[in-house]
Simulated scan of single mutants.
Amino acid sequence: MPIIAAQGLTMRFPGVTALDDLTVAVEPGVTGLVGANGAGKSTLIKILLGLLPPTSGAAQVLGLDIARDGARIRERVGFMPEYEALPPDVSATEFVVHMARMSGLPPTAARERAADTLRHVGLYEERYRPIGGYSTGMRQRVKLAQALVHDPQLVFLDEPTNGLDPAGRDDMLGLIRRIGAEFGISVLVTSHLLGELERVCDHVVIIDGGRLLRSQAVEAYTAASGSLVVEVEEGRDRLGQRLHDQGVAVRPEGRLLVVDIADEETYDRIRDGVADLGLRLVRLEQRRHHIEEVFAVGSEQPHPVPQGAPR
């Protein structure tokens, strides 16, 4: 049974259509929601939380109707907003306990859950410091903790890696993987960095101008291509020239050679070339597609991704 199901969702503001007859179903697991700024991602999340009534259409979250059961949906769903909304003069413990109490947990259970959740997100040692003295990465972890503290069945994470350096992004992505794999909580995560979604998501939903562009398993996006990636320590150009002279389609790409697979003999030619030239082979693997390629394909469709979409 889908955890999210939308049927013909439309949301119109004066002069703007944020969602346009959107129909999509999301199964349990970690799902990425992709779209350019203004594509309707934040509007969709507000509607699914029962905070914003759509102009038309219907949707269900965890089997509950958004029009009638908004409060019950918010009891079972956690939300990590993109925007900064943390009080600077209270500690992470005080804030997360307060959010647990707001979700209906009694005082003792709220304190226990807050301590456990802050430990899970890596803030246990810093939990009594005022949030105002936290780094961007620590504040993002506080927002994640408050979304998880009431043990929801589903969490909405809106751009959780915003403002983080590469190490911070890796840490946050690791936490998202744990939420889905270890805690058994389904996740709907938005990001404009599509490579991040390839790393953590089971499924990706792409919307464009409020309409569904694609909904598909990540494995389908990232299927193996018809090319090989070859990396040698030195002698890239010599190997490339040899393969070219043998009629193999090859092109340099940074330190790599990208070789089109014509037949099984392509592998033999690469192996023999490396051996005959006395090169050290670092990597030989089949290239995989990336989610970004969907936007290049989508730009040729009747509803192109608008300028500024992530590529």
Rank of each mutant, 00 (worst) to 15 (best):
E126F: 15
R283I: 01
L173G: 07
D245G: 13
D151N: 14
D65V: 03
A36P: 11
G29T: 11
E300N: 14
G180L: 10
I47W: 01
P310M: 01
R101K: 04
D69A: 10
M80L: 14
V218L: 02
R199V: 07
L228S: 01
G35M: 03
L212K: 02
L154Q: 10
A223L: 09
R111E: 12
R119P: 02
L193V: 15
E293I: 11
V297N: 07
E233N: 11
E285R: 11
D151S: 14
P310E: 07
G38N: 09
E234A: 15
L164P: 12
R129F: 02
P166H: 01
G168L: 07
S103V: 00
V250G: 03
A59S: 06
G38Y: 04
E300R: 14
V26Q: 09
K41V: 01
T108N: 13
R251S: 13
T190V: 00
L9W: 00
P152M: 06
V24F: 09
F13H: 14
D65A: 01
L86F: 02
V77Q: 01
E198S: 12
R255V: 12
V96F: 01
V187S: 07
L49N: 06
G168C: 07
A18D: 07
G137E: 08
R111S: 11
L86G: 03
D158R: 09
Y124D: 15
